[in-house]
């Protein structure tokens, strides 16, 4: 079975890389499995994605512990233990890093048993982590390193996986992948299909008997600072409450009292003000306001109105100057 891991940061296209590669294997008659692994889904967070491919049905699941190929799109991840880039690298493993530094430097620095290669690129850029179409580049290089994936299958896989992005983008990715495939030619077939662990001589798991520890030690009392205010849950809103201050009679601030998110404060003059960063758009205030002073406006409509207002304002400023 081939076992491949792609490491990168959210936004660098590692999930796409894994999908393209597994699809290319699949087109060649392989059974495949691909999956991304991420914690918090956000740009820049370390993520990895993996591919398994074999001629027989695949029963293995989850994280790949003994990879045949590891591709690292962002060399700053190598030093982060939690990113797990070096996990399970053995003498058979090929480690391909997207880096400005030389393979020898990495070999000496990491002292890993496997072989280190640098992702070949057509032109050097200032920051390789910012290379365009990085995911496709990684998939193209991986396909060539594996050696048994023909270019047509790689290209067909890209068309399948990226079709939703439109032909122009697909074309650019095809070109990029073909170049990476070409540049990796000298390493073609370097990646060798891994073997299975033998049930005869395997590393015995170092099991322990779980120690009992009192709650003062074992309860998850891990405290972090308050974050709820930092998360702008206003982005969840589909409807926006808009107060008509002509109608608002500053009752006894029913709206503010009922808002489950504490998003309505009352200003010095006694008027309610809605914090749109925190208002989730539940419309409870709309339902509660006695003189019906709060209107529910579709968020898309409200945003459009804001944008128009803003342009009119700048134009107005432009007129004056």
């Amino acid at each position: 079975m081939y076992r491949i891991r792609f490491h990168g940061r959210g936004g660098q296209g590692m999930k796409t890389a894994s999908r393209i590669l597994s699809n290319a294997f699949f087109l060649g008659g392989y059974e495949v499995q691909d999956a991304p692994r991420y914690g918090a889904e956000r740009r820049g967070a370390p993520i990895f994605a993996y591919v398994r491919a074999a001629k027989q049905p695949i029963n293995e699941r989850g994280i790949i512990n003994r990879p045949d190929l590891v591709i690292v799109a962002d060399d700053s991840l190598v030093a982060i233990p939690a990113a797990g880039v070096l996990q399970g690298i053995g003498p058979q493993t090929v480690l391909m890093i997207n880096s400005h530094e030389a393979a020898r430097t990495w070999e000496e620095r990491l002292n890993v048993p496997g072989q280190v290669l640098i992702l070949p690129v057509t032109e050097e850029v200032e920051d390789r982590a910012e290379l365009p179409f990085l995911g496709t580049t990684c998939a193209g290089a991986a396909a060539r390193l594996i050696g048994i994936i023909p270019l047509e299958h790689l290209q067909q896989a890209i068309r399948d996986e990226l079709a939703h992005l439109g032909t122009e983008i697909v074309e650019k990715n095809l070109q990029q992948a073909a170049e990476a495939y070409e540049l990796a030619a000298e390493y073609a077939g370097k990646v060798i299909e891994g073997t299975e662990i033998s049930a005869q001589d395997y590393a015995k798991p170092e099991w322990i008997d779980m120690p009992f520890e009192v709650a003062s030690i074992s309860a998850p009392t891990i405290h972090t600072g308050l974050t709820s205010e930092l998360a702008a849950t206003g982005t969840w809103r589909t409807m926006r409450p808009v107060i008509d201050y002509q109608l608002c009679n500053r009752c006894w601030w029913v709206c503010s009292e009922f808002c489950p998110d504490g998003a309505i404060t009352v200003d010095d003059e006694g008027y309610p003000q809605i914090d749109l960063d925190q208002c989730k758009g539940c419309m409870i205030c709309v339902a509660q306001c006695p003189p019906h002073a709060i209107e529910a406006v579709a968020e898309s409509v409200a945003q459009l109105a804001e944008a128009t207002e803003a342009t009119e304002a700048t134009e107005a400023v432009g007129d004056k100057s």
Binding site: I197, A199, Y202, A203, K204, E206, W207, I208, M210
Partner: peptide
């Protein structure tokens, strides 16, 4: 490896004629 080890414990249990206590899988 853990599944292999579980299988080995099954064999040992049969030899001894009794099952080991329940195990919460966790390593050192």
């Amino acid at each position: 490896e853990e599944l292999f080890e579980i299988a080995n414990q099954l064999k040992q249990a049969v030899e001894k004629g009794s099952a080991p206590p329940p195990r919460l899988l966790y390593t050192a």
